[in-house]
């Protein structure tokens, strides 16, 4: 099975190790993974800021980079949601292009969804010492129905204990450019999320979207918490890897 890895711009820039963890998980499950070298961003930041052209340009680019694969996988519910739910509707004037985008969207998956529902992964090599509380990122949850998939996989990590927080489904306040444009509201929402997460006394806050994780970690550190880990689910599932730096 040839799988194209869409690493996403945030992971590319901020946390390459999430990209390598994703790569490892897919390869361990027997996928032939290819990383198209010219991939960049899904276009969502511009699209949600009101620039449709950002979405259209990135949709065309995505099609050129990934159409040849059996499947495309991204370690993000947000970017996958952009592709699956919004790309085709950006081209009402071009039904042929819409058909191609729809076909590709149907083969594009968020990482945990792909591992559980397509690869049907039963075993993971990883281990994690401690308790985890899981934050459901909005796009993955509401656009793609990702809820049980990450929990099921974390349940297969040796040593990992899942400790649910109150209201895991409420938004953390990231919202892409919202977190900068309306930073004060975003900070308050992040505060509430940190509170709910810290109440569980979990060792790590884990989620499937790096944007939310940066928002949560950024608030935690500002509040002086230096110990609670904030991790992407791929890092937990793949286990610790030597830092490629």
């Amino acid at each position: 099975m040839r799988v194209g890895l869409f690493v996403t711009c945030l992971v590319d820039m901020m946390r390459p190790r999430i990209g390598f963890a994703t790569l490892k998980l897919l390869q361990d499950a027997g996928c032939d993974v290819v990383v198209p070298p010219h991939q960049t961003c899904c276009g969502q930041p511009g699209f949600n800021s009101g620039d449709r052209e950002s979405g259209r340009a990135m949709a065309r680019r995505f099609l050129a980079d990934f159409e040849s694969f059996d499947h495309v996988v991204a370690p993000s519910g947000s970017c996958t949601g952009m592709i699956r739910c919004h790309y085709a509707e950006l081209f009402p004037e071009d039904p042929a292009l819409q058909t191609r985008l729809n076909a590709l969207s149907a083969r594009t998956f968020e990482l945990t969804d792909f591992l559980v529902n397509v690869l049907k992964v039963e075993r993971l090599e990883s281990a994690f010492q401690g308790s985890i509380t899981y934050h459901d990122s909005c796009s993955g949850l509401r656009e793609l129905g990702i809820k049980q998939q990450p929990r099921q996989l974390i349940g297969r990590v040796a040593g990992a204990r899942l400790q649910e927080m109150d209201k895991p489904e409420i938004c953390c306040g990231f919202g892409g450019t919202f977190s900068i444009k309306l930073g004060e509201i975003a900070t308050r929402m992040a505060d509430n999320k940190c509170q709910d997460a810290l109440t569980t006394k979990a060792d790590a806050i884990v989620g499937g979207d790096l944007g939310c994780l940066l928002n949560i970690e950024g608030r935690l550190r500002r509040l002086g918490d230096e110990t609670t880990q904030v991790l992407h689910v791929a890092e937990v599932l793949a286990g610790p890897e030597p830092d490629p730096n």
Binding site: M14, R15, G183, A190, E217, G218, R221, V230
Partner: peptide, 8 residues
């Protein structure tokens, strides 16, 4: 209101 975790 928040720190920005630095890139790797």
């Amino acid at each position: 209101g928040r720190d920005m975790p630095a890139p790797q």
